[in-house]
């Protein structure tokens, strides 16, 4: 099947988007056939507010993962990083703010939590980069190691228990909503989640960084051909460390959103398997797993595809035992639908 290069490029660029629209249309069609008109809720803004909101945390992580995969790397430690940094943030906040009540220093406590999330995330990520760039450990192995270490650090700190915030106001960060009148169910208000705006805003920033800066060009260059990039004078070690630090920073943002949303962190389960969802979102979005080619906004589409699948399984009451089968099939179909490089 010979496609013109132009058509191939267009498919490559808009394939994921087409897959998403197809998925949405298919779900709506099945709902229309099986659910009485007054009970149909899939194609409502309220539902998509749920989908985007539920997936904005993994989405933020996936943005960082896009940088890493574009570089030709992988980061398995992101989920553990979310738990470690989020847990550390709450522990710090509780200490700074003191016990609940009138004398509680909620403001400084929350500021400390934000600082721990962002700095801690960037630091934990940079450590990954350091191990890979300076320690010459394969990214898969290095982050497999830090995944175990980061998770264990936070689990050991509290012996596997849940870490609870003592500052009620902290919840406001991850749960914040903006009421948009008239767009909700039955003409009510739509509580648009702020975490969605954070996710999309970060995606926009990442897009600009990757396409409009020297650093961004270098990320693509290293991922495409590290040797050529080295000969062209790209500082590979520095770029690598920065990329993993960015991934860590994104995990820090996700940790802030997740830990404040639940106002707690379950040391052993928060962030569990985020790495797989994030990698899946990036790859479903068409970014090449070997690096060098891909787009951030396609990752956003990938996150949405995963989110719509999960939501659809709920909305159509799919039997739990078959949910995995259906999910896997849809993911494979979404990737199969995209054009591939010529087979070897």
């Amino acid at each position: 099947m010979a496609l013109s290069p132009r058509l191939t490029r267009a498919l490559e660029r808009f394939g994921p988007l087409a897959a998403l629209l197809l998925l949405i249309a298919g779900t709506a069609a099945i709902e229309a056939m099986t659910v009485p008109a007054e009970d149909r809720r899939f194609l409502t803004l309220a539902n998509f507010n749920n989908i985007l909101g539920q997936n904005s945390f993994v989405g933020v992580v996936a943005i960082g993962m896009t940088f890493v995969i574009l570089l030709g790397g992988i980061d398995l430690s992101v989920g553990a990083m979310v738990a470690l940094v989020g847990g550390a943030a709450i522990l710090t906040m509780n200490r700074v703010a003191g016990s609940p009540g009138d004398g509680q220093a909620a403001g400084p406590g929350i500021a400390a939590a934000v600082a721990v999330c962002l700095l801690g995330g960037a630091l934990a990520g940079a450590l990954n980069g350091l191990l890979i760039a300076k320690g010459r450990i394969a990214a898969f192995v290095a982050t497999l190691g830090t995944m175990a270490i980061y998770r264990s650090l936070i689990v050991a700190q509290v012996q596997g228990a849940e870490i609870r915030s003592a500052v009620p106001a902290y919840r406001g960060i991850g749960s914040a909503t903006i009421n948009v009148p008239g767009l909700g169910l039955e003409g009510g208000d739509l509580p648009l989640r702020v975490s969605i705006l954070v996710f999309l805003g970060l995606a926009l920033v990442a897009h600009v960084v990757l396409t409009r800066t020297v650093f961004g060009r270098r990320v693509y260059a290293v991922g495409d051909n590290a040797l050529a990039a080295r000969y062209a004078g790209v500082p590979i070690a520095r770029t690598t460390i920065n990329v993993y630090a960015i991934a860590g920073l994104c995990c820090g943002v996700a940790a802030l959103l997740v830990s404040s949303r639940a106002n707690s962190v379950a040391s052993s389960s928060t962030g569990m398997l985020y790495e797989l969802d994030a990698i899946a979102a990036v790859v479903i979005g068409g970014t090449r797993l070997q690096g060098g080619a891909g787009r951030v906004w396609c990752t956003v589409v990938g996150v949405l595809i995963l989110g719509v699948i999960n939501n659809m399984l709920n909305m159509l009451d799919v039997n739990v035992y078959y949910q995995g089968l259906l999910k896997g099939l849809i993911i494979l179909a979404a990737v199969l639908a995209q054009p591939k490089k010529a087979a070897l």
Binding site: G160, A266, S267, S268
Partner: peptide, 8 residues
């Protein structure tokens, strides 16, 4: 392993 509250 403590993967949720009960096992913790």
């Amino acid at each position: 392993a403590a993967d949720h509250g009960w096992t913790a």
